[in-house]
Design a protein around this nucleic acid. Structure first.
Lengths: 142, 142
DNA sequence: TAACCACTCTGGAATGATTCCATTTTATTT
DNA sequence: AAATAAAATGGAATCATTCCAGAGTGGTTA
């Protein structure tokens, strides 16, 4: 299901043009999916495939793809955004030393003890944010 | 417990010097605690109290205070860091429209339905990150 | 209480990720 | 092949933050 053709046909369905740059970005996203690549890595990888591609295009395209649900944007504090072609529900385990990002199924227990036993990852710090709309803003919008 | 004197005595205990800049920053942190202030707000508030204070100092001091456990740094994606003098366990509810940050006790149910009933805040999106050390990095450190 | 020095502060430059924008290019339609 | 709306380009701008080298200052000590 995580295949280039699927992404390409989604682009067509939504009326986007199929350009060499977009194809190169899709290639890079799929090839480096394990690394949860950021714009820089995508740019480097796509530069090898596509004769001409600019970093601006990579940024615009990744933003566009995530806004249209083709990929998921992982946002971190003071760190490059990363992108994931795997749209299934999972938590990100982020290593403080090497910076690698691991996927962890959300269905399993989220107790630090269980995470350590199953994945070998020792959780030292959790960050929990709930985004939405506050009472006042809901009232204001009617 | 959230009082200036407590913060000041913590500074002394840890061997930090008591400077007018640090006092002004503590004042600003306590006075604006409800707003979960960022560096800019702290800088503006502290500028009124302290004749001379630079933004660099504000940044350095807030970083130092959080690293030493005097305050908590709230980090957001592509948004100014915010600071909290309340060190008790709580979740942050972030309004997508007005940007305000609300505290929500972590002891209570984290079900969106319960949060809405208790606080009037409608959760549309959750971000869950677990930070720590991966298996390989743990192995490497012995 | 003066002198000392490690800790602080300063402000301007640097950084890094990202966005903006005016211009040029191109994929697709007719 | 011409038309045109969408896409790509690259350089400048933005924004939060850090870096740095030089100037300043609490607090200890003689």
């Amino acid at each position: 299901m995580i295949c280039k053709d699927g992404l390409i046909s989604q682009l067509k369905e939504k009326g986007f043009k199929i350009t060499p740059q977009r194809l190169a970005i899709i290639d890079a996203l799929v090839e480096h999916r394990e690394a949860h690549p950021g714009a820089t890595l995508i740019y480097e990888a796509a530069s090898k495939t596509s004769r001409r591609i600019s970093l601006s295009t990579v940024y615009a395209t990744l933003k566009e793809f995530s806004e249209n649900g083709l990929i998921r944007q992982l946002e971190f504090d003071r760190m490059e955004n990363r992108y994931d072609v795997d749209l299934s529900d999972h938590v990100n385990l982020i290593c403080k030393r090497c910076g690698k990002i691991f996927d962890y199924a959300i269905a399993a227990s989220l107790e630090p003890r269980d995470i350590a036993r199953k994945s070998g990852f020792v959780v030292t710090d959790t960050r929990l944010e709930f985004h939405g709309y506050c009472r006042d803003c809901l009232k204001r919008s009617g």
